[in-house]
Nucleic acid binder design. Structure first.
Lengths: 225, 225
DNA sequence: TTGTCGGCCGATCGCCGACAA
DNA sequence: TTGTCGGCGATCGGCCGACAA
């Protein structure tokens, strides 16, 4: 059981920053999780069932996880020690969960090697430094014409005021909806409805840099530098 | 280097759910992180400096991390293998960071043991099942009288309409501001301004259960069951 | 080509007491 | 005691073109 050790750099970090070690946090977490919640103790011996875990994850995400297989060749159960417990809450909801870090008592597992990413779809992207108008109460974002043509889905120009709805995903996996219209004299590309909610939520100010990317399949993503 | 192994249950999970393995995510992440970003490769040998890491964390959080010390008794540097890399983004902002999981090649470290929590400040708390009115467009939350007295800071009753601002922290560490007033005939405790933003953001509906706690020092916390 | 503005409208937020369960 | 409602005013979001840099 002393055959190895683990340091998960981030888990130490986040444990300190979000104050998950504090008593008050712990109390609220338990109230939110409800009374039926059995958590193992630090240092306790437990068995880990890789197949069971994979099936659980598949059930909750409804995806096939073939990608997990190649990395490891694990026995059906592993005797482990609980070496860390973090009471956590999901990023995009308030669902509570426990992060339990285990260290196997015996087994050896192959260290994964970097697998070169063969699949490289074309990605268009552009960045823009936000102006005062982009972040003002007026709530409109003007898209430089060239970038709108390269990076955004084409508009139906037969309409008097061409417009469409865009959906962009950020690094958290959150969806953001923007009305994209082409109007004014002279005409220009604008993001209107939804833009305000975005800037408010992300607390954007003049000078911040926004990033849009668009993959081959057309899906739009948005980020902040 | 094959002396041990690690399974961080959650890091596997989140890697799949948020799609951090996808090429598109990776591209956006790199655009957001900027050009100056050197990330080690999977399986690579690196040295980990515990003291340096602790100092970095202290610098960024401006806290003393004495609590880290008792858990481990580490040498000044440890030869490690990089066994996992996750391109991530902070929960409450869009700051990018890398989570690197390391496995020491040689060293043994003592497994931590549960330390009984001696410090137990009194916590008041209450829960309430949300009514249609609580979640309606009107945007007011009526606090049961008893709970308001037990759990919320006392109001200045000399005012014609007693009111104050409450700040409550959720499990993410986010702050929520609520106007708390005592009015109507018959009089009752209400949360008004800020309540709408809260329900919208948390996507609360009738039947959801809200939790408030208040510690000895008066700090308020809020969660969802 | 695009940053900033004024104006305008409608939707929403927040505030209040009246009731009644 | 507290859930629901109607009514209200103020604010804000969103839409638009005018203009100028």
């Amino acid at each position: 059981m002393e055959s190895g050790n683990v340091m998960n750099v981030q888990s130490e970090l986040s444990g300190i920053i979000d104050g998950s070690k504090s008593y008050m946090y712990e109390q609220l977490w338990k109230l939110c999780a409800g009374p039926l919640c059995d958590i193992p103790k630090l240092g306790e011996k437990v068995y880990y069932f890789p197949q069971g875990h994979i099936e659980l994850v598949e059930a909750s995400t409804r995806e096939e996880l073939n990608e997990l297989q190649p990395n490891c060749d694990l026995p059906s159960k592993l005797q482990c020690r609980v070496i860390a417990i973090h009471l956590k809450v999901e990023n995009n909801s308030d669902e509570t969960y426990v992060e339990i870090t285990l260290m196997p008592d015996t087994t050896q597992v192959v260290i994964p090697i970097e697998n070169e990413n063969q699949f490289r779809p074309i990605v268009n992207s552009f960045t823009k430094v936000l102006t005062a108008s982009d972040t003002s109460a007026h709530g409109e974002f003007s898209v430089p014409c060239k970038h709108a043509i390269e990076c955004l889905p084409p508009l139906d120009m037969s309409q008097s005021i061409p417009a469409q709805e865009l959906i962009a995903i950020d690094l958290h996996g959150n969806q953001w909806r923007f009305k994209h219209s082409y109007r004014g004299t002279p005409q220009r590309h604008l993001l209107t409805t939804g833009w305000n909610a975005f800037t408010t939520s992300k607390k954007l100010v003049v000078g911040d840099v926004i990033v849009f990317t668009r993959g081959e399949t057309g899906e739009l993503r948005v980020g902040i530098r």
